[in-house]
Simulated assay, not measured.
Amino acid sequence: MNNKKQKNSGKNKLHEIIYEADTTQGKLFDVILLVAILTSIILVMLESVQSIDTKYHNTLYFGEWIITILFSIEYLLRIIAIRKPRKYIFSFFGMVDFLSTIPFYLSLFFAGSQGLIALRALRLLRVFRILKLARYIGASNKLILALKASKAKIAVFLFFVLIVCIILGTVMYMIEGQENGFTNIPKSIYWAIVTLTTVGFGDIAPQTPLGQLISSIIMILGYSIIAIPTGIVSSEISKTSETLDTNTQSCPNCLKEKHAKNAIYCYHCGSTLNA
Rank of each mutant, 00 (worst) to 15 (best):
K4I: 11
K5S: 12
Q6F: 10
Q6E: 13
E16I: 01
I18R: 02
A21K: 01
D22T: 05
Q25D: 14
K27F: 09
L28Q: 04
D30F: 06
S48N: 14
V49W: 05
Q50K: 09
I52Y: 14
K55T: 06
N58A: 12
T59L: 05
E64G: 14
W65T: 05
I66N: 04
I69F: 07
I73L: 15
L76G: 04
I79K: 07
R83N: 11
R83A: 12
S100N: 07
T101L: 08
L108H: 07
F109R: 01
F110S: 07
G112D: 15
S113R: 12
Q114T: 15
G115K: 03
A118C: 06
R120Q: 14
L122E: 13
L124N: 06
L124V: 05
L125M: 09
F128L: 13
K132M: 01
R135A: 13
Y136S: 08
K142N: 06
A152S: 10
V156M: 13
F157D: 04
L158S: 06
L158C: 09
I163W: 04
C165M: 06
L168A: 10
T170I: 12
N180L: 03
N180S: 13
I185F: 03
P186S: 10
A192C: 13
I193V: 15
I193S: 10
T195Q: 02
L196T: 05
V199D: 00
V199S: 04
G202E: 02
I204T: 14
Q207F: 06
Q207Y: 09
P209H: 13
P209K: 13
I214M: 13
S216A: 15
I217M: 10
I218W: 05
I220M: 10
I220C: 04
I225N: 00
I225R: 00
I226S: 04
I228Y: 14
E236A: 15
E236I: 11
K239A: 15
K239Y: 11
T240C: 06
S241H: 01
E242Q: 09
E242D: 11
D245M: 10
D245I: 04
T248N: 11
Q249M: 14
S250G: 09
P252Q: 13
C254S: 10
C254A: 11
E257D: 06
H259Y: 04
A260T: 07
N274P: 00
